[in-house]
């Protein structure tokens, strides 16, 4: 009974604005990457720079991209490792 009254006054279903916001958030992740073609390249360089402290990687075989599912966007990086650097484990003792 209360549900019916609620529905009459338009409070029965949640508003559609949250759906709008969520869809926008996802679509803008991709849009913003595409605005600047250099974006992925710059990101790649930064990743290489920080990883190189710890391991030797194959920069040519490296792939970085964005993938999205229904509700999230992920940064996927496939980075072939040639060898680990010895010094990296020193910090662990």
């Amino acid at each position: 009974m209360f549900n019916i009254i609620n529905r009459i006054f338009g409070k029965g279903s949640a508003g559609s604005k949250d759906i709008a916001k969520e869809r926008l958030r996802l679509v803008l992740v991709h849009d913003r990457v595409n605005v600047s073609p250099q974006f992925i390249e710059i990101l790649k360089e930064d990743i290489v720079r920080s990883i190189s402290t710890y391991m030797e990687i194959d920069e040519k075989g490296m792939e970085v991209s964005l993938a999205s599912s229904n509700s999230s966007v992920a940064l996927i990086a496939n980075i072939p490792v040639r060898r680990m650097k010895r010094g990296a484990s020193f910090y662990n003792d």
């Binding site: 508003g15 559609s16 604005k17 949250d18 709008a20 916001k21």
Partner: peptide, 14 residues
């Protein structure tokens, strides 16, 4: 008010 349109804060946030 009904939650069927984005409000100002939503748009500023985005």
């Amino acid at each position: 008010k009904k939650g069927d349109m984005m409000d100002i804060d939503d748009m500023i946030d985005i």
